[in-house]
């Protein structure tokens, strides 16, 4: 009888301790959550950033978006065009049958199922929660698998030592880079457009529209609902974040 009551009280003490431990752990996890909630938002899957490019407004001779991008990210001319970095390039198209000409900017299409992410051996090529495809240059080994895998030829390899980088765009020899959708502007959360869209608007073309594809009320989503927009190489099923109208 005595031993039974002993074991019952021991069990009770054990359960009490267990309860205390649980309370302590609940308290500590609460503190952790509070700390992380006090910091800034960062990339979130609530958003998916993308571009809508109206090729009807894009003129063949204009490269305002390219120079805007180069200026923003400090991509200076090296004098060696074969190896210079190219985050955006202008493409002029002609329909062989009808002779209809069109012009468009081509850059990283920020695919939902990005081939560059699939092939990267180190995980340096990655997709942020908000759909922006980036290269983490800290882990990029410069193997250039992603350059080969990208159907849009959007990636550039840096062949030469670079100096005078801008603080918002660290760039260096031996790594791969591409359009970041001006991720520093997105993170600043000031509603600023990417440099290419800004440059295009400045030249009064307004061919590039930036916005949140996940938000049905955003201008880009409403535009996509109204107009027929295509993905370049839609046959690959990559679900690109950059769409084109008027092609």
């Amino acid at each position: 009888m005595q031993s039974t009551s002993n074991s019952v009280s021991a069990r009770r003490r054990f359960l009490q301790k267990l309860g205390l431990l649980g309370a302590a752990s609940a308290l500590s996890s609460y503190t952790l959550i509070e700390v992380s909630a006090s910091t800034a938002q960062g990339a979130s899957a609530v958003n998916r950033w993308g571009l809508l490019i109206d090729t009807a407004k894009c003129s063949a001779g204009c490269d305002a978006c390219v120079t805007g991008c180069n200026e923003e990210h400090g991509i200076d001319a090296t004098g060696r065009d074969d190896t210079r970095a190219q985050w955006i390039r202008k493409i002029d198209l002609q329909d062989n049958l009808t002779g209809r000409e069109s012009s468009l900017p081509m850059m990283c299409q920020h695919c939902a199922s990005a081939p560059c992410v699939d092939v990267c051996p180190t995980g340096a090529s990655f997709k942020r929660d908000d759909g922006v495809v980036l290269v983490n240059k800290h882990t990029c080994i410069g193997c250039r698998y992603c350059v080969m895998a990208c159907p849009y030829k959007a990636r550039s390899f840096i062949h030469e030592t670079i100096s005078n980088q801008k603080s918002i765009a660290p760039r260096g020899k031996g790594t791969v880079e591409s359009c970041t959708l001006c991720v520093h502007r997105i993170d600043a959360n000031t509603g600023q457009q990417p440099a290419c869209a800004e440059a295009c608007s400045k030249d009064a073309h307004d061919a590039i529209l930036f916005g949140d594809l996940n938000n049905p009320d955003s201008e880009i989503s409403r535009s996509l609902k109204q107009h027929k927009a295509i993905e370049v190489r839609s046959d690959l099923g990559l679900n690109t974040g950059v769409r084109y109208t008027g092609l």
Binding site: T39, A40, A43, R128, L134, N136, S167, D187
Partner: peptide, 21 residues
């Protein structure tokens, strides 16, 4: 800070290299 910034997009943090410089 590097991983927070590159992967999570948290730039408004105290220990950024830009601030060091």
């Amino acid at each position: 800070q590097r991983d927070e910034t590159v992967i999570k997009g948290l730039r408004d943090e105290p220990f950024s290299l830009v601030e060091c410089v």
